[in-house]
């Protein structure tokens, strides 16, 4: 017997669904199944008004096993990570954590991800930090850098290669 979503001809992917729920548990979160669709998350979602993110619908689709639809959607990248959905959920479900799981899946499947993340990962690999020291402008329109302000040197990994190797190793693993 099968269940098919006739709008997309998608079928529930129970294996990926189990994988996401197992991941949620290992990260100390509640599984999605308890969601009863009160949509308190969407009522208070910071990204909803501007970008139409509907956290309750994300959870509903996960409960239905329609993972591909979610992983391939751009909407999962609109979350502002304010965590109000997780904080106020009466069933302790955490839509934000489900979104992290879906985004991780999208990355692992080689899907194109927003440029910011690629750039940040590159910077972490080479430097250990998401960006290097910036020159900034003061209110009086002069420019200044960290050392000119008398601040001590930046704390960052000194053996960059060793650090890079560790990060590269993990980058191909999953939670």
């Amino acid at each position: 017997m099968t269940i098919v979503d006739l709008t997309s001809m998608g079928e529930p992917q129970t294996e990926q669904q189990r994988e996401i729920n197992a991941r949620l548990v290992s990260l100390q979160n509640e599984i999605s199944s308890y969601c009863y669709q009160c949509a308190k998350c969407t009522s208070g979602c910071e990204a909803h008004k501007l970008l139409e993110l509907e956290p309750h619908k994300i959870v509903a689709l996960l409960k239905r096993g329609l993972i591909n639809e979610l992983v391939n959607s751009d909407i999962i990248w609109t979350c502002m990570t304010c965590m109000k959905c997780r904080e106020r959920c009466p069933q302790r479900v955490a839509p934000i954590e489900i979104l992290f799981a879906l985004k991780n899946m999208a990355v692992a499947s080689g899907k194109q991800i927003p440029g910011k993340y690629t750039a940040m990962l590159q910077s972490i690999l080479s430097l250990g930090l998401i960006q290097d020291i910036q020159q900034i402008t003061t209110r009086m329109n002069t420019t200044v850098k960290r050392d000119e302000l008398g601040l001590p040197p930046l704390s960052k990994p000194t053996d960059a290669q060793k650090f890079q190797a560790a990060v590269m190793k993990i980058a191909t693993e999953k939670v």
Partner: peptide, 21 residues
């Protein structure tokens, strides 16, 4: 049909965002 996330006191009135499922 839905739960509001919060009620905001705007002094003259109260404001509620509600996602109606």
């Amino acid at each position: 049909r839905g739960r509001p996330s919060e009620v905001r006191d705007m002094k003259e009135y109260l404001k509620i965002d509600i996602f109606d499922t």
